[in-house]
Design a protein around this nucleic acid. Sequence first.
DNA 1: TATGAATGAGCCTTCATTCAT
DNA 2: TATGAATGAAGGCTCATTCAT
Lengths: 205, 205, 205, 205
Amino acid sequence: MGKAELNKIKKLNMILDSAFDLFTSKGVENTSIAEISEQSGVAKGTFYLYFRDKHELRNRLVYHKSSTLFKEASAALDQVIACKSTPMSFEDKLIFIIDFVINKLEDNKILLAFISKNLSWGVFKKEPINAVSDSEVDFKEIYYKMLTEEEKKFKEPEIMLFMIIELVNSTAHSAILYNEPADMETVKPCLFDTVRAIIKEHEIK
Amino acid sequence: MGKAELNKIKKLNMILDSAFDLFTSKGVENTSIAEISEQSGVAKGTFYLYFRDKHELRNRLVYHKSSTLFKEASAALDQVIACKSTPMSFEDKLIFIIDFVINKLEDNKILLAFISKNLSWGVFKKEPINAVSDSEVDFKEIYYKMLTEEEKKFKEPEIMLFMIIELVNSTAHSAILYNEPADMETVKPCLFDTVRAIIKEHEIK
Amino acid sequence: MGKAELNKIKKLNMILDSAFDLFTSKGVENTSIAEISEQSGVAKGTFYLYFRDKHELRNRLVYHKSSTLFKEASAALDQVIACKSTPMSFEDKLIFIIDFVINKLEDNKILLAFISKNLSWGVFKKEPINAVSDSEVDFKEIYYKMLTEEEKKFKEPEIMLFMIIELVNSTAHSAILYNEPADMETVKPCLFDTVRAIIKEHEIK
Amino acid sequence: MGKAELNKIKKLNMILDSAFDLFTSKGVENTSIAEISEQSGVAKGTFYLYFRDKHELRNRLVYHKSSTLFKEASAALDQVIACKSTPMSFEDKLIFIIDFVINKLEDNKILLAFISKNLSWGVFKKEPINAVSDSEVDFKEIYYKMLTEEEKKFKEPEIMLFMIIELVNSTAHSAILYNEPADMETVKPCLFDTVRAIIKEHEIK
DNA sequence: TATGAATGAGCCTTCATTCAT
DNA sequence: TATGAATGAAGGCTCATTCAT
């Protein structure tokens, strides 16, 4: 990779970092491209060499942040599995991942507010990622691997995953940020029971 | 109610109608208060006598539109019940309402895009409604009445309702507008099975 | 006329004056709306209450300035006629007007450069003049009056006038500003002979 | 001519062609150097190796297009003369050329709009032509040859030619593009009569 | 209560031009 | 000679908001 090439990637990452910083601290609407450029140390015009507009940047960031969450959860799951002697069930794995993601979002409300109700983008959106990162591992692949490792079979596994993520995302969003319909502590057990019920419902007996 | 009073309400409704029209046809961001005022036939300054800013107006409209959906669903349910000789179970009633709402959203994608993922506002948001309508009937009350009419008991009924609405809203939004994770026809049976599973899961045996 | 009304006209005239000043001293392209606003003492946004963009303003100014030239020429002609005992022929009147206009343009090269080759707008363009001036007297009317006062008749008098103005404008523009095809002093007699030839050619015998 | 040399000329012509294409389809002001470069298949920086700026390019194109018109007219005239047994008068030759040019402009309104009121550049402007074409034949030379072939003598033949071209250009421009003062069909006979009158007027008897 | 002209900060975006490669 | 990424000044324009009427 040439020097210019490296410089380009560095610049792109500078923009992405600054933008995330500003978006989460002041809100997307209240952040101007001038500010993003300034904080990134690039000229205003340079911004437009990388992104068509602020929304493209925001979408790419949401995608990036949410897919990162799932990747982190997968990595954590791998570690746990490695430490265990007995194998984990598919259900437990999925619950582990969801729990991990929820905990992360609880710890990082700013991130939650930024991702908002678009957590599923990290798993389902087909994005043309230019250069955010090279080694993109798809969480969907991991999910399918989890399914093959399980004896039980499930109908419509993709729709099931989608619904679970949407449910978890929406509920966590309201509960954590607005205590609606109740605070997260109250909602959590309910939510987990519900997720397990959904998984069970999709099991092919 | 005096003539002036009536005129005020008429103006307010003109603003609300024009705003909804513009928001859904051009998007909230691309609609200016000048346009809303113009289409409403009121002066720009007058807008500020009714709303603090565009966002307050938008939120009130989302709230209004989503709560209306539930009210329509309830009314339709009442009609169906009136025609029937045998009583309906709580589960069937809730499914009926959800089905009604989904069908409405499928028929009116513009409305769905406008409500976006805020359908639950219509049930859960405590809004200071100035004058959109006087005789607001709370869907939550209807829901609780449905619960009392049922022999079965449910734990955390409010959280359950919230989760169901969020699940339905998110899934319908993606499926109807983006065919994600699949088109609505495919997703629908899955979704209904899941809702039934959630209700069952919350039943106290 | 109300106070607000008067204020509006005053503002409009301020903008027109400042714009002409800047257009002629720095060129239209090099004049920004910010500058026009500043020099006019109005806010930038105010500009857009009066003009859609810079081009509309420029066109209106060109129209205004060129029609003013013809009005001045007519007034001067009237004075001359008033002082004379014998009546003037149509040809002499037209020549007088053209001579007057050329002399004005020679004395005011900045104005000539601004009007450029659009002198005929002042006579032929149908412009919706908002408020530049109220008592617009159409030069075309004056021209037709001149025709009726003349015994001789002319074919296609409007096309004849148009061609004469275009010829005079184009030739004066090149000769005065660029000495092309020769300096104005050399070109002038030629030009006048030609104009007379054109008039003669259109005479119906 | 070396290969590099040829390549350079090819590039220059690519730029000229693309620029004319863009200028006439979107207007000079709305065409950026970036677009010209892109459509030409050269880098943005390369543009500046050939032209100082957009205006230089535009002027060169206007000059080129208008002089080409006169060259085409001369060539057509030569053909006509070659077919004839009797010699043509100077007046008829000039009329032929003017007629040819007008017809071309009527058929190609885009070209007319681009040349605008600068048709005389093709005859009178002294341009530093770098490399648009090598074998530039000056129309003025042709014009002087036409004069020598004629028995009649004319005073100020250059000013006469200039005035005729300006008159024809201005009138055709307004009539063809804006039907001002009337449509071209109506204006044409008038215009030709006028041109003949001008020629006659300049004849030395 | 209602108006709508005026504001002016601030936005996005373009673009000619440079210069290291 | 050719490139094209980077620049950053500059421009047009919008718009929420105010306030005198």
